[in-house]
Simulated scan of single mutants.
Amino acid sequence: MHQRSYYSPKGGLPPQTQLLSDRAVFTEAYAVIPKGVLRDIVASYLPFWDNTRLWVLSRPLSGFAETFSQYIMEVGPGGGSDRPELDPGAEGVLFVVEGELTLTLAGERHVLTPGGYAFIPPGCDWQVRNAADSEVRFHWIRKAYEFVEGLGVPDPFVVNEVDVEPTPMPDTDGKWTTTRFVDPTDLRHDMHVNIVNFQPGGVIPFDETHVMEHGLYVLEGKAVYHLNQDWVEVEAGDYMWLRAFCPQSCYAGGPGPFRYLLYKDVNRHPKLRLDSR
């Protein structure tokens, strides 16, 4: 079985001799945030988090992606938070890429290692701590949950990627699979955070053009993405942020698997008014 790897940023600054140009792109349809821009100078901090910094990869912007935010959290030894989420209407997903994260979720203690995944419904009580001797780094994806009368709120859960069997995409001979952590037919969920896997040479063989917004963080490997008629090279540690209806396809171009963590909004009517709740 392939040994999974998970890229995580370390911060720092490049030397004064480095060229300024990089692969960062921000357009009206998509953004590419390459791993080289996740430096100390762009790190942020949050209230009620101890010994913690973060890189904000995406946030709602008027006229661009509007449904979610995504952070890479870096928590030092002994750090964490007893009040991590200040918005009672927010749901979240945590995905660990390095180290050990101790999560107390609805009163139950879990230790998440790389590949560890937690879904946190709105209003759920949770806390996180780093009880280890080195940093823990994890993704935190947040969305304002869209309540629907007659549908309950999803239950919290914790799992590791290694315990979830990837689903082959039709007619791909297993070269393209998706690791799904939530049943797609469970309409209580209004977002999916999956892992998409390609074997070398695997492709998305058409330009997907759809209503879902995306955040894509490359965990492993490299590929070439076709985004709104532009060809963009991406590799482990890069992040892509795609607006709804941005055409998108790719082929895996490296010697090993190409894998990314994928956010998308699902299972709800599009809002017809700006003040719609």
Rank of each mutant, 00 (worst) to 15 (best):
G253Q: 05
S62N: 10
L19R: 12
P156D: 10
V232I: 11
S58V: 00
G116P: 04
Y225L: 01
P255R: 12
R83G: 03
D133M: 09
Y251H: 10
P170I: 08
Y117L: 01
D163G: 02
F48W: 08
L227K: 08
A236K: 14
K175L: 10
V211Q: 13
A118L: 11
R59N: 13
Q70F: 02
V203T: 14
N51V: 06
G107R: 06
A236R: 12
T179W: 12
F181N: 00
R83Q: 06
K264W: 08
L242S: 08
F68H: 14
Y145R: 03
V42P: 06
E213H: 10
D125M: 07
T209W: 14
P9Q: 09
R23K: 14
P205M: 00
Y7D: 01
S8Q: 03
Y6P: 01
Y6R: 02
A106N: 09
P200W: 04
A236N: 03
R137S: 12
P15W: 05
Q16L: 07
E213R: 11
Y71Q: 06
F147C: 00
W55Y: 13
I41G: 06
G12T: 04
V97E: 07
H110Y: 15
G107S: 05
T209H: 14
E98S: 15
V196Y: 14
L227R: 11
E165K: 09
Q16S: 12
G253N: 08
H269I: 02
M73G: 02
Q3D: 15
R259L: 04
L112E: 10
D22S: 08
A43Q: 15
D173W: 11
Y217V: 00
L272P: 01
G253P: 02
V153W: 14
R188T: 13
V159P: 02
R277F: 09
R129A: 13
L262H: 13
V111M: 06
Y117Q: 03
K10N: 09
R268L: 13
G152P: 03
W231P: 01
L112N: 05
W140D: 02
T104S: 05
C250I: 06
V153L: 09
E85N: 07
A43L: 08
D40M: 09
E135R: 13
W176V: 02
N194A: 07
R273P: 03
G99A: 11
H214N: 08
R39Q: 12
E161W: 07
T104Y: 05
T27F: 09
P121H: 12
A244M: 01
G79E: 02
H2R: 15
E91K: 01
G78A: 00
G115S: 03
V97D: 05
L274E: 14
L57H: 15
V128H: 09
E161F: 03
L227G: 04
F147K: 07
A144S: 04
E28L: 08
V136W: 12
Y7G: 00
F245K: 00
Q70K: 15
S8T: 01
G36N: 14
G150V: 00
V234A: 11
D22L: 07
S44Q: 13
A223Y: 15
D173R: 15
W241L: 10
R273T: 07
V159S: 11
R243I: 12
D230P: 03
Y7C: 01
L151V: 12
T209Q: 13
S249E: 11
T209C: 13
G115E: 07
G123D: 05
Q127L: 10
N228G: 04
F258N: 01
F119N: 05
W55C: 00
F198C: 00
G11S: 05
Q16K: 04
